[in-house]
Design a protein around this nucleic acid. Structure first.
Length: 490
RNA sequence: GGUCUCUUGGCCGAGUGGCUAGGCACCGGUCUGCAAAACCGUCUACUCCAGUUCGAAUCUGGAAGAGACCUCCA
């Protein structure tokens, strides 16, 4: 395995870099998780699946990986309100629920959807509300080191001072002077020394529900401190990979760089990875744009933009067909294409298990395909190229089944290993939904197929076609092959 | 307005200075009682203009269009 040759595109340096773990054999991975104040939507799947693949692949090649993905259940401010207001709290007031009740509800929704998509649970899934103490301690450290100041009960990070000493904007490529000169007037900026400063702790307004005691005020943590506090706690001062959506580069991740540089005395993250967005009609899909489709709507097909329901695995495959750093445009046509491709792949995977080897058959290059798949994954997790390799294997599998090609025993074993490794272990695709996993249904289907086979033997096409047509109404497709009839769900 | 990115065939999407991924759709063929599936084949692109080069879709410059970030957002 080419475990020593994985290249990752590092946003910090805008180029692909060889992955060299800080501790040999071990990887610390932190990914910004969901803010749990709404239903999980298609946009949430991109980072979840992107980093699920990273997690799975690194483990597959032999690394011991600790994957930390947080849950933000506190702290993000809502800008369209007159005053800064905690998102969770706002939703809670509208719904007349406890804030934590709302958070719990959406955490459960998120987990339910991610389970359906076969996204592995991270090693640790810390909640921001459970780490208020750690966040307060980190704010204190930053204050003690002189890179923050207290103002009206709130604490702000002194970006100007940071820029002088360390240089600001390394990750997002932003220039502080330009930023300051371009600043728009926003509410509450009078408390800050400079418009570019960001909050580490915010004093809560009287009507604010979620708030905690701190040395400075009854309030809540700033927008960015939770990730720095939690990543430091579970992965240490210096860890390997920090991931998230591209839209988080600024200001969220840039602020994390500031915080960790000061609090930990080191730029904590070695490789920054950012996934691109999913677009809909060329536009970003997002809650605030009101053009998002929840995952549940995908699973049920209940949305004006959806022509049909889509299986979770179709969505997973759809996402894997694009490279994670490119935008991916949603459309029914694209999803339906993904659905068909996914089913063709899974059918071939099942077929491959049933193939028989031919003694002395010539080598047909399975090892080469295997190598190409690993090379593609090692090249910044290039799943589309890997999929192209898998479809080459699909073509070979089907050709063998049709008797147009022969395979020897060694290569047949390798072929099945290829599918097992990439389709299941690394891509995390499931085949259960294709049917055939229910003994009762299998038995019933076999009986029906037997009756039809008899009818066909008697050239009773009326009965034969009736059975096929009736089953078709139930979305069950019969396939008459040389070695009998098989079936699958549409 | 500032910063940045992108523009590939009917659709989705890789990629590289020359040998032109892959999926889906379409069309033709094989197979089939007829289908479906499968296999084989066909079609074959790189926004525009100029430059560098023996050779560019790939490098450089310019134009047009689209998008992202600058404000919560995956």
């Amino acid at each position: 395995m080419n475990k020593d040759k994985i290249f990752i595109y590092n946003t910090l340096h805008k180029k692909k870099e060889l992955l060299e773990p800080i501790t040999p054999g071990k990887i610390g991975l932190y990914v910004c998780g969901p803010t749990v104040y709404g239903e999980p939507h298609l946009g949430h799947t991109r980072p979840a699946i992107t980093f699920d693949i990273v997690f799975r692949y690194l483990k597959h090649v032999g690394y011991q990986v600790r994957y930390v993905r947080n849950i933000t259940d506190v702290g993000h401010l809502e800008n369209d309100a007159d005053e800064g207001e905690d998102k969770i709290a706002k939703k809670a007031r509208l719904d007349q629920l406890e804030p934590m009740e709302v958070a719990q509800f959406y955490i459960d929704s998120y987990h339910f959807a991610m389970d359906k998509l076969n996204v592995l649970r991270p090693s640790i899934e810390p909640r921001a509300s459970g780490h208020i103490i750690e966040q307060i301690e980190m704010v204190q450290q930053i204050l003690e080191k002189g890179y923050a100041y207290v103002s009206e009960g709130s604490v702000y990070f002194d970006v100007v001072k940071f820029d002088q000493d360390f240089g600001y904007g390394k990750l997002s490529g932003r220039n502080l002077d330009e930023m300051i000169s371009n600043t728009r007037t926003l509410d509450g900026q009078d408390e800050k020394r400079n418009s570019a400063d960001f909050a580490l702790w915010k004093k809560a307004a009287p009507e604010h529900i979620m708030k905690w005691n701190s040395p400075w005020s009854l309030g809540f943590p700033g927008w960015h401190i939770e990730c720095t506090a939690m990543s430091t706690k579970y992965l240490g001062d210096h860890f390997d990979i920090h991931g998230g959506g591209m839209d988080l580069i600024f200001p969220h991740h840039e602020s994390e760089v500031c915080q960790s540089t000061v609090a930990n005395g080191i730029e904590s993250v070695k490789y920054w990875m950012h996934n691109n967005m999913i677009t809909i009609n060329g536009q970003k899909m997002g809650k605030s744009l009101n053009n998002f489709i929840t995952l549940n709507q995908f699973f049920t097909g209940d949305h004006p933009l959806l022509e049909q329901a889509y299986q979770p695995m179709t969505i997973r495959f759809f996402i894997l067909q694009a490279h994670y750093r490119g935008t991916l445009d949603f459309s029914n046509e694209a999803l339906q294409a993904a659905d068909k491709g996914y089913k063709r792949l899974m059918t071939a995977v099942a077929t491959a298990r049933e193939l028989s080897p031919t003694e002395g058959a010539e080598n047909i290059g399975i090892q080469k395909i295997m190598d190409e798949c690993y090379d593609a994954m090692n090249d910044d997790f290039n799943t589309p190229i890997t999929i192209a390799g898998l479809f080459e294997a699909v073509r070979i599998t089907n050709s063998i089944k049709d008797g147009n090609l022969k395979i020897n025993k060694e290569e047949l074993t390798l072929l099945n290993q290829l599918f097992q490794a990439f389709v299941f272990d690394i891509f995390g695709l499931l085949e259960s939904e294709l049917g055939g996993d229910d003994q009762l249904v299998d038995g019933l289907m076999q009986t029906i197929i037997n009756i039809r086979t008899e009818a066909r033997a008697k050239k009773d096409w009326a009965t034969s076609d009736l059975i096929r047509d009736e089953l078709a109404k139930l979305d069950i497709v019969l396939k008459d092959g040389k070695d009998g009839t098989s079936w699958s769900k549409k």
